[in-house]
C-alpha cells in the first residue's frame, strides 16, 4: 500500500527536494558516525521530526520490528565476539566445549550498531511516509519511461493488494480453504488467486495502455510538469542541514565521531557531547520550524 499520507504540517509542505536532502543527510551521517553519542543525537533528531510530521503511529510499527532486530544483534554480538575485557557473564561449561564469556564491550558494540540501524530505519520511515513517491520521481526523472513505470507501480500495487483480498474473500465463499491443511495444500489453494490476479492485472494493464495511447503517450518527446515552489523554509532548512552535514563530516575527519568499543569502553568526553549538541541543533531546525509553524500564524506566513 502507498504509505504516504498527506498531513497538515510543515514537514509535508516542504519542497520534496528539501525533505529528500534532510533524509539523505541523516542517512549519510548514520553511516559515518560510530560514536554512540553522535548516533543517539541523530536518533533524537529523526524521531522528533517523524513525530512532528504526524507519523508516530507508522514509526511505532517500524520501531517494533527494529527493536527485535537490535536485540538479536546484541545477543549474537555478545555471544560470538570475545575481544572485550570487561566480562559480565560467564556461562557454565557447555558439553566440554568450554565456557562463553560475554563482555560489556561486545554488548555495547551491539547496542551501538542497533542505534545506527534504528536511525537508518527511521530515516527510511520518514521518507516513505512524508515524501510523495511521484514527486520524488518527477524530481529526478524528468519524464523518463522508468519514472512512469515506477509511478504506475505505486498506483497499481495498492489496487492489486485490494484485488487480492477481494478474490480471497470471493473464493472462500466458494469453499476454498486457505487456512487449513499442510503448507503445500495451502500454497496450492492460493494458485487460483494468483492466476485470477495475473489475468485481471494483465487485462487492466492493456486497458491502461490504451488510455495512455489515447492521451498521446509515446507520440514524441514529453515534458515534465512540476508545480513545486521554493519557500524560505526550504532555504532555511537546506542551509542548516548543510551546516550539520559539514560539521558531521568535519567531526568524522577529526576522528571525534568514531568510537573504539574494544578492548575497553573509553570514557565519553564532554567535547563529544558538545559537538553532538551542535549537530543536533542544526538538524533539529525542521522540527523546530514545524513546531513554530503550528504555534504562530505569523511565523507560518513568513516562512
Amino acid at each position: 500500500m502507498l504509505a504516504y499520507r498527506e498531513e497538515d504540517n510543515l514537514i509535508h509542505k516542504l519542497h520534496p527536494l528539501t525533505t529528500v536532502v534532510f533524509v539523505a543527510v541523516v542517512f549519510v551521517l548514520a553511516l559515518v558516525f560510530s560514536h554512540p553519542v553522535y548516533l543517539l543525537g541523530l536518533l533524537l533528531v529523526i524521531g522528533t521530526v517523524i513525530v512532528g510530521a504526524g507519523h508516530y503511529r507508522e514509526w511505532k510499527s517500524y520501531l517494533k520490528f527494529s527493536l527485535v532486530m537490535i536485540a538479536i544483534i546484541i545477543i549474537v554480538n555478545g555471544l560470538f565476539v570475545h575481544v572485550g575485557q570487561t566480562i559480565i557473564f560467564t556461562s557454565p561449561d557447555l558439553l566440554g566445549r568450554g565456557r562463553i564469556n560475554v563482555s560489556l564491550e561486545a554488548l555495547a558494540f551491539g547496542a551501538g550498531m542497533g542505534i545506527r540501524l534504528l536511525v537508518i530505519i527511521s530515516a527510511f520511515c520518514l521518507y516513505t511516509c512524508a515524501v510523495h513517491p511521484d514527486k520524488v520521481m518527477k524530481l529526478f526523472g524528468r519524464g523518463s519511461k522508468s519514472v512512469l513505470i515506477m509511478t504506475l507501480s505505486t498506483r497499481l500495487f495498492p489496487l492489486m493488494v485490494k484485488d487480492y483480498y477481494r478474490i480471497i474473500e470471493v473464493q472462500r465463499c466458494r469453499g476454498v480453504k486457505f487456512d487449513q491443511g499442510r503448507w503445500w495444500q495451502r500454497a496450492r489453494n492460493l494458485l487460483p488467486i494468483v492466476s485470477i490476479l495475473l489475468v485481471s492485472s494483465l487485462e487492466r494493464a492493456l486497458q491502461l495502455a490504451e488510455s495512455m495511447h489515447a492521451r498521446g503517450y509515446g507520440s514524441g518527446p514529453r515534458t515534465s510538469y512540476s508545480r513545486e515552489l521554493w519557500r524560505p523554509r526550504d532555504y532555511l532548512i537546506l542551509t542548516t542541514v548543510g551546516v550539520g552535514l559539514v560539521l558531521g563530516i568535519w567531526a568524522a575527519l577529526q576522528g571525534w565521531s568514531s568510537y573504539s568499543y574494544y578492548p575497553r569502553l573509553p570514557a565519553i568526553q564532554s567535547a563529544d557531547v558538545e559537538m553532538t549538541g551542535l549537530i543536533v541543533l542544526m538538524l533539529m531546525v525542521p522540527a523546530v520550524l514545524n513546531w513554530g509553524w503550528g504555534k504562530w500564524p505569523l511565523l507560518k506566513s513568513k516562512i
Binding site: G143, T151, L208, R215, R222
Partner: peptide
C-alpha cells in the same frame, strides 16, 4: 481504475499535456 495513471489528481490532469510536450 483502468485509465488513471498517476497517484495524484493534479499530475493526472497534467499527464496528457506532458505527452503533448
Amino acid at each position: 481504475e483502468s485509465q488513471l495513471v498517476m497517484t495524484n489528481v493534479e499530475q493526472e490532469l497534467a499527464f496528457g499535456l506532458e505527452n503533448l510536450a
